[in-house]
Design a protein around this nucleic acid. Structure first.
Ligand SMILES: [Zn+2]
Ligand SMILES: [Zn+2]
Ligand SMILES: [Zn+2]
Ligand SMILES: [Zn+2]
Lengths: 165, 165
DNA sequence: TGCGGCTTTGTTACTCTATACCATGATGCC
DNA sequence: GGCATCATGGTATAGAGTAACAAAGCCGCA
């Protein structure tokens, strides 16, 4: 039973998204093994559901999908899995949407920076060189010690700009 | 009936906070006049309540305080006022806290960037030179048109670092 | 093999945040 | 005064997140 199709994966379906998912799971296994953490069935399932699309997905949407599998899940089930996945760096939270998205680079810890398309909902994780450092160093000048950062830009992706015009 | 005191204003009460509030209101009047917008009694009151502290305040906390005034307010009352105040640039939303804080520079539109202390709750609005531009230009390289940005850094302010140590 | 401690999950019941919707009232322009 | 527009009141409900406690699974060790 395929979780995803090329069509549903990305509004602009131009890649083999099934590969995104299987690849993400495989890498998650490796990351968890490395960390000595247990990627249980629930956690793996939630990760798959998060990876169903490149658009951030809400916790309650995950919950619905879990229930369609026949499992009787409640909110804590989902939130606990998400918490674990975030601790492992496998999933990031999109603050401006109260939603979650899979990380394409879980092997190395990083500050996540996002471009969020307001038309198609897509989220693209980027890393602007020196940006995180710049924020931390400016904060340090003010005596502030940065522990975590959130950088999210909203607007229109290139595809949606063309479509809308 | 004074809205605020020096003590309650900032965890590290080292300034005349009453002045912050009256100044903020005065400038809000000017900004609204400039925009041809109406700073009604409700909106002014909500703005005052937001300015009660330099820590972001939740919508329902504002609601409680409104009710203590004797007014029978409901959530939409608060959210509508906040929406208006944000449109006018008088208030910013802190995404990582689902809370709102007054803008110290409402006269000129800008992207708000914040340092958020996890110990005392204080929010300091900063503007890191070139940061917004850098984000927008990197996005543009990827064909993405940025409409709005969120930049929030969490950690410890200088005072709380000393206190904790 | 069975015991004891730890981690993970199930379940219930909330709290907090935010919005949809419709009715009512105020404002200002002609 | 009539009318459009803006602002508020008020109810109900949707959406997001957590507290608390019980049950089950896993692991190392006797
Ligand atoms: Zn994909
Ligand atoms: Zn798009
Ligand atoms: Zn102040
Ligand atoms: Zn502090």
């Amino acid at each position: 039973m395929a979780l995803t199709t090329k069509r549903s994966a990305r509004p602009h379906g131009d890649h083999d998204h099934a590969h995104c998912v299987t690849d993400a799971i495989a890498r998650a296994e490796a990351v968890c093994a490395e960390h000595g953490a247990r990627l249980t069935e629930n956690r793996r399932r939630v990760l798959e559901l998060v990876w169903q699309s490149h658009a951030p997905v809400g916790a309650y949407e995950i919950l619905e999908r879990l229930r369609k599998d026949g499992t009787r899940a409640a909110p804590p089930t989902v939130y606990r899995a998400l918490e674990f996945l975030m601790e492992q760096g496998l999933v990031h939270r999109i603050e401006t949407r109260n939603a979650f998205v899979g990380c394409p680079q879980p092997e190395q810890r990083h500050v996540a920076q996002y471009l969020l398309c307001e038309a198609c909902g897509d989220a693209v994780e980027i890393e602007i060189g020196g940006l995180a450092r710049k924020i931390a160093s400016r904060a340090a000048e003010l005596g502030f010690a940065v522990a975590a950062q959130t950088v999210e830009a909203r607007g229109l992706c290139s595809r949606c700009q063309q479509t809308g015009a």
